[in-house]
């Protein structure tokens, strides 16, 4: 059996609406605010209901303009490469405070360009260093807003 993209998406939204609605009911209101006509919960609850109803409609109504099978949409794509890039970005966020802006940026750009198939190492190094150094110069020297120097580097006694 195939599930169309619309129906699969609507199912996801239905789940989201229920979760969101439950979270909305748990919003803690300050003491004495409960009696007010509109509270911090009102709009979220309306949104949860609306999302629930619209997604249910999509699930129930016949699908005339289906754009294809849900599973097929995820097939035949270069996932390893994309996931590698996503992981590199996440890693970049993780090490930025530790390694400092200069090092981690240069590392991120080098790794990402290499991962996409560029093999001229000199060129990659040049681009990575230019981009990270340029941004560093702009922020530190022109804007005078200190970028992360790197906790780890400090602990190792480098600066």
């Amino acid at each position: 059996m195939t599930i169309s993209k619309e129906k699969a998406g609507a199912l996801f939204f239905l789940v989201l609406a229920i979760a969101y609605g439950m979270a909305a009911r748990n919003i803690r209101l300050p003491f004495g605010f409960e009696e007010e006509l509109l509270t911090a919960r009102t709009m979220p609850l309306i949104l949860a209901w609306a999302t629930g109803i619209v997604s249910a409609l999509i699930l129930i109504l016949p699908n005339k303009n289906s754009s294809g099978d849900f599973i097929a949409a995820f097939r035949g794509l270069n996932w390893p490469r994309a996931i590698l890039l996503i992981a590199l970005m996440a890693l970049y966020g993780l090490v930025l405070d530790q390694l400092g802006f200069l090092l981690s940026t240069a590392f991120f750009l080098f790794a990402a360009i290499y991962a996409l198939g560029e093999r001229r190492l000199l060129l990659i190094t040049g681009i990575s260093l230019a981009a990270s150094g340029g941004t560093w110069f702009l922020m530190n020297e022109v804007f005078d807003s200190g970028l992360a120097k790197g906790e780890l580097l400090y602990k190792l006694g480098i600066y």
């Binding site: 619309e6 998406g9 609507a10 939204f13 989201l16 969101y20 979270a23 909305a24 919003i27 803690r28 209101l29 300050p30 605010f33 509270t39 911090a40 709009m43 979220p44 949104l47 609306a50 999302t51 619209v54 997604s55 409609l57 999509i58 109504l61 005339k64 303009n65």
Partner: peptide, 30 residues
């Protein structure tokens, strides 16, 4: 064409995302 309900769903998603954070009465949400 035929995507009207999907557009509404996505608008609702945007509306939901806008409720993240402190609201104007100082109540933190989501």
């Amino acid at each position: 064409k035929g995507k009207f309900l999907l557009a509404i769903l996505m608008t609702l998603l945007g509306l939901m995302l806008s409720t993240i954070g402190q609201d104007q009465t100082g109540v933190p949400r989501f």
